[in-house]
Simulated scan of single mutants.
Amino acid sequence: DPELWHRATEGCDTLDLAVLNAGRADAAPLVDIDFLQWRQVMAANLDGMMLSLQYAMRAMAASGGSIVQTASISGIKAEPGTAAYAASKAGVIQLAKVAAKEGAAQGIRVNAIAPGGVDTPIWDQVPMFRDLVDQEGSRKAAIAALGRMATPLGRYARAEEIAAQIGFLLSDAAATITGTVLVSDGGYSL
């Protein structure tokens, strides 16, 4: 809701750093996706990201800044049953690249991070994961099993690790990095 964004940010005219993070998962084969579910995923993951990016870039226009958007390895590597989520995150990646090009003249850097498996609550929405929790006996064991199955490094990332990588992209140490996608997936996409 653009009007909600306008009201929520009224009086906040400057911004130096922004982390734009949205994630709503859905799992269904493309031929079975309910259109309402598709729209809900797109609204959260892509429409929300665009509105956030629009506000952040406007607030950074006078003095520059750095933005990191959370995409996903699903936006790069295709997997069956992920059409809505994957399409939304691929859109986030392209949105970051366009924004980087548009914002460069104003000193605005825009990057994306594309995590693979990360131990976050988004997994709890996925029916397959709930089944794995039952099979493995706990949520922690299910996350460990997924990491062993899916990545050459044999584990999923912790949220703190992804946060540190985002911190790097926001920092002056990454001052010449814009329009890039940092893939942090334990080798899943290899």
Rank of each mutant, 00 (worst) to 15 (best):
M149G: 12
N21H: 11
L51Q: 09
D172F: 00
T82S: 07
A25V: 05
R24N: 05
S88M: 01
T70D: 10
A62V: 12
Y188C: 11
S184P: 02
M57W: 10
L15G: 10
P29S: 14
S171R: 00
F35M: 12
L132S: 11
S171L: 04
L4C: 15
T178M: 07
S184I: 05
A43P: 01
R130M: 03
R158T: 13
S63V: 02
D34R: 09
N111P: 03
G11C: 08
L132N: 11
A164M: 09
E79G: 13
G107R: 06
L95I: 13
P29I: 13
L53E: 02
G154F: 09
A141C: 08
G147R: 01
A100Y: 04
A112M: 00
P80W: 07
G48Q: 15
D34P: 03
D124P: 05
V126Q: 00
P80G: 12
I166D: 08
K101H: 10
E3Q: 15
D134V: 14
P2H: 09
A83C: 07
A83E: 01
K89A: 04
K89T: 07
G179N: 03
I108R: 00
D26P: 04
L95R: 06
N111S: 02
S74R: 06
I143L: 07
Y156W: 05
K140D: 15
D34C: 08
T176F: 09
A56Q: 04
N45D: 10
S88A: 05
C12E: 12
S189R: 14
T176W: 04
G167P: 01
D124Q: 14
D34G: 12
A18P: 02
R130W: 00
R155H: 07
I67R: 01
A150K: 03
L46I: 04
A104M: 02
P115S: 09
A141T: 13
D16E: 15
A145C: 13
S72K: 10
M50D: 11
F168M: 06
W5K: 05
G107H: 12
S63C: 11
R39G: 05
A99V: 10
P152K: 09
D134T: 14
A18N: 01
A173S: 10
A59E: 03
E102I: 03
I166F: 01
D34H: 09
G48P: 02
T70K: 00
G154S: 10
G187P: 12
A83V: 05
A28E: 13
V110S: 08
L30Q: 04
Q94N: 14
L53I: 14
T180L: 04
V118H: 00
G103H: 01
R130D: 11
D131W: 03
G179T: 06
L190K: 08
V183P: 03
S66T: 05
T70A: 01
A104Q: 04
T120L: 12
S63R: 13
K97E: 11
